[in-house]
Amino acid sequence: MKKNCTIRVALAGAALAAFSLAGPAAAQEGAAFFKGKTVTYIVATAPGGGYDTYGRLVAEYMQKYLPGSTFVVRNMPGAGHLVGTNAIYASKPDGLTIGSFNTGLIYNQLINADGVRFDLSKMSWVGKAASESRIVAVAAQSPIKTWQDLVSLKDPVNFAVAGPGSASYVETVMLANVLKLPVRIQTGYNGTDDQLAMRRGEIVGSIASRSSYDQFVKNGFGRLIAQIGGNDPNLPQMSAVVTDARAKELLALIESTGEIARLTAGPPAIPADRLEVLRGAFKQAMEDTDLRARAEKIGLPVDPLYGEAIVRMINAALKQSPETVALLKESMERKK
């Protein structure tokens, strides 16, 4: 990790040096533009919760590195991040509106779902603050101790997901279908409902983002039996234990959406010089020691990537085989 960090800083330095040689005039013009301006940072959820916390942190520290600017966080919740994302996409591309939303919207775009009024590949990507690897968690009182235990169950057990169409729903339904997991999917468990239900015993497990289960596992209420992405040496990587080719393709998709978590993006066609300035400020914010200290204290992982790297990942994630898209479609449009 340390080494990784050093390399990143070195690369950043190199990039900055190259950048300053290449276009000092443009960058200065871009930076000057933000003086005295107000930047609206749209968070596609209600106040509170991970998206809001990351959003406020990013906005606060981007402001620090864009002298003279004022960042205002605006919560635009609704329709599973669609309202906020549509608003970011439709905003004026002057660099004064950016924001954050769930990467799971990749799924919605792939199947061209209702309510999608954006094209993620065209957005102006600033960066991402973290990765949210997925895990399979089961209740502590359940006899299931390992992934193998789960797969070889005779009678299906209840797995909780949020509302239909949510990322947790889509991922769980797809994996259950392809891997023929012995699970019955119970919908409507939003927020931390699933954890309480696991304590009550009505729900046995859940496929969720790792950070939402850290505390639960630490308190001894549950255990993790597999991971998708992530680098926990004690957990089996799901892509390594499955053999089905279709499943591997799916896992790669889930992994990549997990990789680009806590993102910051703006509408298409923000002028290049201003986007560069925004990316620069985002990068400085991510490397700020104060931000790191605060994030660590709240238990928010910081694992950033910037600009073009994100664009490549988004484009890769949006290129899926027709079979995967069909599977997604089947999972998102629930049988009536």
Binding site: A79, D114, G163, P164, G165, Y169, T187, G188, M332, R334
Partner: peptide, 9 residues
């Protein structure tokens, strides 16, 4: 709003 079961608006 969204049907909690079928996801139909």
């Amino acid at each position: 709003g969204m049907d909690p079961q079928t996801g139909t608006a």
